[in-house]
């Protein structure tokens, strides 16, 4: 579906995307995760030609993007980070006019708009202006608009940033429904729960380079283990014990994150001997992998 080989984007001296190679298979949901400025959006924008690549090879649907940009764009649906819906048009007109940009004939555009309005549950607001919609409705409409050309590849750039929990789940349900129909999805996100729920496979990028790649479970297993012990306000004895045991951990000062792949027994010893309270054993998540690999300092 997507084959990117040594893909690079340079802005002056800065390499926003630094020779990355990855591929996405048909029917797969592939995630690109990374801190702010890691090159996620730049990578995605190169895929639909919005940003021309500086070097490397990019093939979509077996077509080289340099020679076949228009054909490639006709088969992609893009859900951009910012809602660039057309405020001069109504909800329905946004879908039908967008269909015309793809040269879809008006009767078919109308039929697809009907289907999509029902898919995103916005039939009752079809004549509303864009400015009258809530944040969740806007995101659903952007998703519907990205589907108007019945794409083979759906690109979602931070689809749920800034949404309330209900709207996020609404959107996830719809993306899952699309996945079930066999649509290939490429997703960037800041939310690890989102990535863990939607992605079959993902890569974590930082400073334009790929740090790791794999399935969410495999990444958790390989980089942090199955379980984590978190200790709030650790005392000196506990630190000494953890040090002696040779178990990898991270010291945040007021908090220890212990990558205790050994699990239950280690935790029992720890909590019996050193912890009165504030010790917690929990399953490791993608967020642990992400923070361990990209660090905890702010990226702004």
């Amino acid at each position: 579906m997507i084959v990117a080989t040594s893909l690079r984007k340079a802005f002056g001296k800065l390499r926003a995307v630094d020779d990355i190679t990855f591929s996405v298979s048909p029917g797969e949901c592939f995630g690109i995760l990374g801190p702010n400025g890691a090159g996620k959006t730049t990578t995605i924008r190169m895929l639909f030609g919005f940003t021309p690549k500086s070097a490397g090879r990019l093939q979509l649907f077996g077509l080289d993007i340099d020679q076949h940009l228009r054909q490639v764009k006709a088969r992609i649906g893009v859900c951009p980070q910012e809602n660039n819906l057309d405020p001069d048009l109504s909800v329905r007109q946004n879908l039908e006019m967008y269909a015309r940009y793809f040269d879809i004939p008006p009767p078919l555009a109308r039929r697809r708009a009907d289907q999509l309005l029902s898919f995103i549950a916005l039939e009752h607001r079809q004549n509303a202006r864009i400015g009258e919609l809530s944040g969740g409705m806007l995101r659903r409409l952007v998703l519907a608009r990205a589907l108007i050309n019945e794409p083979e590849l759906l690109i979602l750039d931070e689809p749920t940033t800034g949404l309330d929990p209900q709207s996020r789940h609404q959107l996830w349900n719809r993306v899952e429904a699309l996945k079930a129909r066999g649509l290939t999805v490429l997703l960037t996100t800041h939310y690890m729960d989102e990535a863990a729920r939607l992605c079959d496979r993902l890569m974590i990028v930082d400073q334009g380079k790929i740090l790791v790649e794999g399935t969410p479970l495999q990444l958790i297993h390989d980089h942090v283990g199955a379980e984590i012990i978190e200790v709030a306000s650790p005392n000196a004895d506990l630190r000494a014990f953890v040090d002696r045991s040779g178990t990898p951990y991270e010291d945040l000062g007021h908090r220890l994150i212990i990558y205790a792949s050994g699990g239950a027994e280690y935790y029992h010893t720890l909590s019996r001997e050193f912890c009165q309270s504030g010790c917690m054993l929990r399953p490791a998540t993608l967020e642990d992998v992400f923070l361990r690999l990209t660090g905890r300092e702010l990226r702004e």
Binding site: F48, G49, F50, R70, Q71, K73, A74, I76, V78, P80, E82, N84, L85, D86, P87, D88, Y98, Y101, F102, D103, N149
Partner: peptide
């Protein structure tokens, strides 16, 4: 302000 051109650029339009 409306990013209409950006939205169009994601379609086959150049």
């Amino acid at each position: 302000y409306q990013k209409t051109f950006a939205a169009m650029l994601a379609t086959p339009l150049t």
